[in-house]
């Protein structure tokens, strides 16, 4: 086995051991349970019923149908903060020092963390989809399209996880992770088409919305689930090719932030 193949195999097998550790915690840590199971239900119900009748979507699409893919996108992006939270917590508790003293792969802790967060997201998406079905959301396209939609959500969330992994290792405490990620994620998810049609924005804000990858992920899911309005005007290339554009963003984010996070992991030690 060549050296780099071995490195990769180690990263994956060690990463899997770390991921299993994180998954076990879903049952044991109430915070995680709330985060993974309860808050997605709350989001769907809250937005569906609070904003449900208030907003008109062009083309006569029911607002709840329009909204649910947006909530999916928003929730998985928010979910990525958990990656940072988890790493900052491990750092504070000194477990990172233990890991760093073991002859394990240097990227395994991060691979494990981001992988277990995909598993968290799968669970959240299942819960949200079921809740969505209950409030009247429907998948109107075929199985393959729908599966592609969910996959795209997971891929995008995975990419954001790497940003948060870097943040989680960089900042001194769990609280700072929460605040720091809030500052980035709030505008990213709310200045998008997740909750309101992009036609309601104007000027520079509209441009931002149309090129915001959260918008394109949402748009892609709406199209793939069959919830998009046929009358919606798509001005930007990004909105016209939402799947490709979202994947490009995901790839770029991982390419930049995975090496940054691994580097930060090697530099960090308990504070």
């Amino acid at each position: 086995m060549s050296n780099s193949t071995e490195t990769l195999t180690r990263a994956i097998s060690d990463g899997w051991v770390v991921a299993q550790r994180n998954v076990v915690k879903i049952k044991r840590v109430p915070d995680i349970l709330v985060f993974v199971l309860i808050s997605p239900i709350m989001f769907v119900l809250l937005f569906a019923y609070v904003f449900g009748g208030a907003i008109d979507v062009p083309g006569g699409v029911d607002y709840k149908e329009f909204l649910v893919p947006g909530i999916f996108a928003q929730t998985v992006v928010f979910g990525a903060t958990f990656t940072g939270y988890g790493l900052a917590d491990d750092m504070q508790k000194g477990i990172i020092d233990r890991f760093r003293s073991l002859p394990m792969s240097r990227s395994a802790v991060l691979v494990g963390r981001t992988t277990s967060d995909v598993i968290y997201n799968v669970i959240s998406l299942v819960i949200m989809a079921l809740t969505g079905l209950l409030v009247g959301w429907r998948i109107r396209e075929g199985f393959v399209d729908a599966a592609t939609g969910f996959l795209l959500l997971l891929v995008f969330a995975y990419a954001i996880s790497w940003i948060m992994a870097w943040v989680g290792l960089l900042v001194p405490s769990v609280e700072v992770v929460n605040n720091a990620s809030f500052i980035v994620i709030m505008p990213l998810t709310f200045v998008s088409n997740a909750f309101v049609p992009q036609s309601t924005f104007s000027g520079p804000l509209k441009v931002f919305v149309e090129w915001n990858p959260v918008s394109t992920v949402t748009q892609a899911c709406r199209e793939l689930f069959g919830n998009a309005s046929p009358d919606m005007v798509l001005d930007s290339w990004a909105m016209q090719n939402p799947v490709v554009y979202s994947l490009l963003w995901s790839a770029a984010i991982v390419a930049v932030f995975a090496p940054l996070a691994v580097r930060q992991y090697r530099l960090s030690t308990s504070k």
Binding site: R21, V24, R28, V29, K93, G94, I95, D97, R98
Partner: peptide, 9 residues
């Protein structure tokens, strides 16, 4: 280590 670095969960 100085503080027991075990995973408490």
């Amino acid at each position: 280590g100085q503080y027991a670095a075990v995973d408490e969960h």
